[in-house]
Each structure stands twice: as structure tokens, then as C-alpha cells.
Write a protein that binds this DNA or RNA. Sequence first.
DNA 1: CTGAAAGCGCTTACAG
DNA 2: CTGAAAGCGCTTACAG
Lengths: 338, 338
Amino acid sequence: MNLKEFAKSIGMSQTTVSRALSGYPEVKAETRQRILKLSQELGYHPNRSAAGLATGRAGAVGIVLRESHGFDPNTTEFMAGLGSRLETRQIDILITVVEDREGELTAYQRLAASKRVDAVILHTPVVDDERMAFLKKLKMPFVLHGRGIDNGNFPWIDIDNFGAIYRATSYLIDIGHKRIGMINGSKGDVFAEHRDQGYRKALKERGLPFYEDMITHGAFIDDVGYRSMQDFLSLSEPPTAVLAGSMMTALGVMRAVRSAGLTLGRDISLIAHDDVFNYINADNMVPTVSTTRSSMREAGVRIGDILLQMLAGRDVSSHSEVWPVELVLRESTAPPAS
Amino acid sequence: MNLKEFAKSIGMSQTTVSRALSGYPEVKAETRQRILKLSQELGYHPNRSAAGLATGRAGAVGIVLRESHGFDPNTTEFMAGLGSRLETRQIDILITVVEDREGELTAYQRLAASKRVDAVILHTPVVDDERMAFLKKLKMPFVLHGRGIDNGNFPWIDIDNFGAIYRATSYLIDIGHKRIGMINGSKGDVFAEHRDQGYRKALKERGLPFYEDMITHGAFIDDVGYRSMQDFLSLSEPPTAVLAGSMMTALGVMRAVRSAGLTLGRDISLIAHDDVFNYINADNMVPTVSTTRSSMREAGVRIGDILLQMLAGRDVSSHSEVWPVELVLRESTAPPAS
DNA sequence: CTGAAAGCGCTTACAG
DNA sequence: CTGAAAGCGCTTACAG
């Protein structure tokens, strides 16, 4: 059923029906209600391609994911939040999977030229990120989840990675730890850079030395946590506390600690960053794990908000938010064993 | 730049350019090559809405995800595989997030009526699944990941859940276990039903009783594994081996075993189902965990194949595949402690 | 507040 | 093998 047929079947002109469904003010409220109800009953929905062609808007936002990256649990949580927000306006999410960074740029070019999406979401910015400039040149609107080193005229939302790790490190020092290991995200990722800085600042402020061999960088997978922790434990003077960049690396740390016959929360303290997944819960670990906590899902919801404003034509180009991160203390942190 | 402008700028008619880009055989190979190269250079991509309107095809496939369900790591892995396959044909994935089952049906209706996608992917079928019949009525092509109890005339791909658990259970019995716990997926999910059946058949064949209190059903989250295992351990005669439906529940089981002061692979044996994530690896656990293994990502790739065939007009309505599941034995399984 | 009609940018049957 | 033109189903400026 198309507009013509639908309009005819309810005895109205195409113009009026179209305007009623799009919520234009020219239509009498009562008329709109009736048309809305009838469209529901008869199951009429405008052909999205036709509407897109006429308006120049796609009614969808894009996310480009690299196969090797971007398919971690974080992305899923983020999309759940984003989608739940966009659903209210019937904006869909278009996923494009690419192989590498170069493929990502090509994908943006195609999405822009073919007008498949009205905006895209960028995530996991790196220190020298070319994507923001690239999208600007394409005139493709975007919101960045995370932030650049150099933030031009575009909207972004990030958590306070610096503050979170600064605070966690400071806390560990304050309860007596003098050697603190750090298992961070991949080198080059802006968030990991900020966490490094928070870590170093806390050490410096409290007059503790920075040890190169007590910091590692890598993907958020359990194996990286395990190996890093094993390396730490093999040092002549191992750390007495460790910061893990994710729950996945934290699981690896816990394993390494057990394997070494040590006890977490007694011999070794741990604070992990928790993006909040329902299937892995810091409160359910043994011992329960202290975390710096920030919900990925909520970030998705908020970025959905901003996108909707963007699509409504509002100027959000200078909008940015930095979300505070909670420090949740549980059993895995304690003063060092004398 | 639109077709008209692009065609003019390279001195060809719109018809020829359009046909060349769509790979129609009427265009001389040499001409097509030239046009293809020029379109790359000038960055011309057909407006997808216009193409969709003209052809009636959207160039995208849909997945509808419920907020409370479908945002687990499995879905992510599946999409990574699916997307990598569809990318080769520049077919995008349209994600629609809904609240509940009813919202899911409404979403299909909208996707069908507005011609936003050419086909959808159904996943996690339940015993009384109304979605297949619903989509047929809408004339919306689909592929089912999993299978129905009653499989009509539609394509599906599933793993051999029955066989996997039958084999794992049989193995445990063969090495001497007489009480085997089972932490299964949610009641009502077809895959969980099949696993139940495999479990029961193995017990029955070898003359072992089925104990109601040695089987639980629930979501694939660590907490479910933990609690189920604690319940098992509080039985007057606890199981000596356990099957966990996922790596997430297996983590919970491992925790409960440790909390009870027992040792996995000695006091308690464990076999977990592993959908293969790169961030949680059965080989890296302590002890390493025996698994029934099947790659979610590969399933995504294969379903992408089938969708592409579908979009190419091939009749795949009676296509189905059941994939065998590997049993990988590691340190977590051993004969019962005397 | 409502309607007739132009136009969005493609694809493809038809004619050559 | 190539081209002129109709038509896909909407939206929206314009006229009333």
C-alpha cells in the first residue's frame, strides 16, 4: 500500500495525509489523530526510500566497525543504549563492517555520497585521528564518543578517564601502596593516554617514582591481564596494587594472582574499570572487585539524544560533556600486607 | 554529485553509467572499467534512496534486538561475521532496538511496509515462536539463526545443540561421573530445549537417574552460574561434574567452586559451551576449561552468505544446516575423585 | 486548513 | 552496445 492508495481509501488527499503523518502544524489536530489511527490500523508506513529521496534525509545514523576492533562487549552495550533512544523517533542504526582504518574512511565516503545515513558516530579516537577532519570535509555530521587530543568544532561526550585513574591511584597510595601496576588500553587511544596521565600525576603529586615496567598497554582481553600480571609478579619488587583497564583484563589479573598462590585484597589490591555489563559483575566476584565505574549504555543513550538534536537541525557543534566516574570500593582493595 | 552530473562530466549517458555501475552485461567491459575507475576517482556513489525507490530494494538487511535480550556478547560476534560477509556486496545492517517481543513484531511491520530492508535475521527462537509465521504473512524474507520446533518453509542454520550436550554428558559418564549438574540457557529457548534433551538422553542411555535439582535454566550471566553451582554444592549429594551453557556461567561456576574450597578438574569437573570470544578464552583459564565449541562469528558469515543468495533471487527457502560442535577436552575434566 | 503538481535521483523497458 | 524518457512514492512550495 502506498500513499496514494492509503489516502484514497480514507478519502483524503495525499498532501494532507503526508503532512499529518509528519506532524506538520497545518493539519487540524483532530484530522491528524484520525489519520494516525487509520494508518496504524491499515498498517501504512511511508516508503522510506521515497521519503528519503524527497527530503534528502535517510532517517538512520551510521556506525562503522572494524572487524578487529569495535566488536567488544563495550560496543554492544553502547548500541543498546543508543538504539533505545533512537527508537523513540524511529531512527535506525546502520552498521557497516570494514577491515581496517582505510576501509573505515572509504565507508564514510560511500555513506555520505549515497546519503544512506544522516550522521555517524565515531568512537575510540586515537591520538592522531584523521577521521574528524575527514568527516568534516565530507560534510557528514557526527558525534564523537570519546574526545580528540585537539577538539575542533564538533560535539563529543567522554568520561573523565584522567580523573578516574588519578583518583583510583591516589586512593591506593593513600592507603599505603608504593608500587602500583597499571594495565591500560592500547597505546595511541586517547582514553588510554588520559588514564596514563592520571596515573602519573597521582604518583608525582605524592612523590612516588614512575616505573616503566609497571605499566602495560593492550587490548581489553583476559589474556593481556593475565600476562601483564605475571610479568609484574616476576619483578624483583612486584607492585602491591594493580589498576586494570577493563573487567576482562581484571579477570586475567585475578587468575594470575591465584596461580601465584596469592590472595587478592590481601597480598595484592585491584581496582578495575567497569563499563557495566550485566553478564560480568564486579559485585559477584570473590573477592568483590573495586572499580571505577561508568555505564557504556548510558553514554549510548546520551549520544542518541545529541544525534536527535542534530537531526532536528539544532546546532550542537560546540557541545561537549565530560562525565565523572565513580570510584566504588570493594574487597579487592586493602592496605599493603605490611 | 548526482548521476546526471557525473555522467555529463565524463561524457556518457546516464543510462550507460548506471548500467556500468550495476554490472549489467550490456555495457562493453572496457567501458565499464573506465566508468568504474572514474566513479572511484570522483567519488560518485548512487543515491541509495533513489536507487531503492527505482528498484524496490533497500540494499540492507535488518536485525531487531530487544533491549533486555540480544545485547549479549554472542550477538556482537555474530554481527561481526555477518557484517564482514555483507560488506563484500555493500549490503548494510540495519539495527532496530525494541523493548519487548511485541515491539519486535511492530518493528517488522514497519520495516516491511517502509521497505527499509530486503530481509531480516531472526535469532534465539523460542518453542512457540510466532515470528516466523508473522514474517511470512508480511512477505518479509528471513533467515533464522537457530531452528524452530516446527520448521516450515524457510532457511535456517543451527548448531547441533543436542549432539554437543549428549556427547559431553556421555563423556563425563564414561569417565566415571554419576551425578552431573547442568546449567542451561533460558527455559523456552529452543536451543536450551535441545540441550536438555541431549543431557537426558545420555543419562538414560547409560542408566543414570535424572535429578530435577541438578538442572537449572537462566540467562548467560556469571551470577546465574555462581548461584546454580552454590545450590548444587549444597545438595546432600552434590554433582561431581557440571555442564555450563556459556563461558559467562562457567566463570560463575569456577568462582563457586573456589569459594567452597574445592578444586576444579579434581573435585569437580566442568565442560562449558564456548561461542568463541577473543576476550575470554577457555585455554587461558586456570585450570584450562573443557568446552563444546562453535564459533558464533562463523555462523554470522554463513548467514551472510545465505542472505546474499536470497537477495540475488535464489530460492533458499528449504535450505537448512546443522553444524557439528567440537568437544575440546582440557584440564577441567577428570574422573571423579575416587 | 486542504489540494494539484513539480521534483527528488535513480533504474530499466523500449527504441535504435 | 547506447540513449531518451517514464516511473518509482514520497514531500512541499505554491495556490486557493
